[in-house]
Simulated scan of single mutants.
Amino acid sequence: MSGGTWGGSDREHDDACHGRWLAVRNRVTDRSGYRDDWYDAQCGGCRFWVALSGELGRDWGVCTHAGSAFDGRVRFEHDGCELFAVREDGSFG
């Protein structure tokens, strides 16, 4: 990086982050124990989920719920937690 702010457009870096972060998901749809009622309560639809900018923002955001164990942590849009709060406008991502 030569001068200026990095804009998150390094594909190799983004892919490496994506791989590392997938390993620490809380809820995985193909894992035993995943409950059907969690499907509609995914991070990407939570009012406290803020998408990252750049390419990573297509799948990743940050939890901003002060009461959540994930507050301030990067979360996969299809992950979730017990403090999910639906967005009033019904949007996702």
Rank of each mutant, 00 (worst) to 15 (best):
C17P: 03
A69E: 15
G33C: 11
R75L: 08
L83C: 09
G93W: 00
A41L: 09
A51V: 11
T5F: 04
G54H: 07
C63L: 08
M1V: 07
R47S: 09
N26I: 13
G54C: 15
R25E: 12
A85F: 03
D30I: 09
H78I: 06
Y39T: 15
G72A: 12
F92R: 02
G90T: 10
V62P: 04
L52I: 10
D36Y: 04
W49F: 02
H65R: 10
L56D: 10
E82D: 09
R20W: 01
A66I: 14
D59A: 06
A51K: 07
T29H: 14
V62L: 04
E88V: 10
E88M: 09
F76N: 02
R31Y: 05
G54N: 14
G93H: 01
L56T: 06
G93V: 06
G3F: 03
D10I: 07
V74F: 00
A41V: 06
G7D: 13
C46N: 01
G72K: 05
W49A: 01
V86R: 08
Q42C: 00
A69D: 15
D40F: 03
D30S: 09
D40I: 03
G3P: 00
R87P: 10
L52G: 02
G80S: 00
G61R: 02
M1N: 09
E88F: 01
G7N: 11
F70M: 15
H78L: 09
G4V: 02
W49C: 00
E12W: 05
E88A: 07
Y34P: 11
V74H: 00
D36K: 06
G57N: 10
C81A: 06
V28H: 13
Q42W: 01
G61S: 13
G72F: 00
C81H: 01
G33N: 14
S91F: 04
F84H: 05
T29F: 14
A85H: 05
A85T: 04
H78D: 11
G61F: 07
T5A: 11
A41I: 04
T64P: 07
G8F: 07
T29N: 13
V50D: 12
W60T: 02
E82W: 00
G44S: 10
R27G: 09
R11M: 13
W6T: 13
R25K: 15
G44H: 00
R27V: 11
L83V: 10
W49N: 00
G90W: 01
G7T: 06
L83A: 02
E82C: 03
F84N: 02
H13T: 11
N26P: 10
V86G: 07
G8I: 14
H13W: 10
N26Q: 15
V62M: 05
W38I: 05
A16L: 13
G67V: 10
A85Q: 11
H13D: 09
C17D: 03
F92H: 04
E88G: 05
E77R: 04
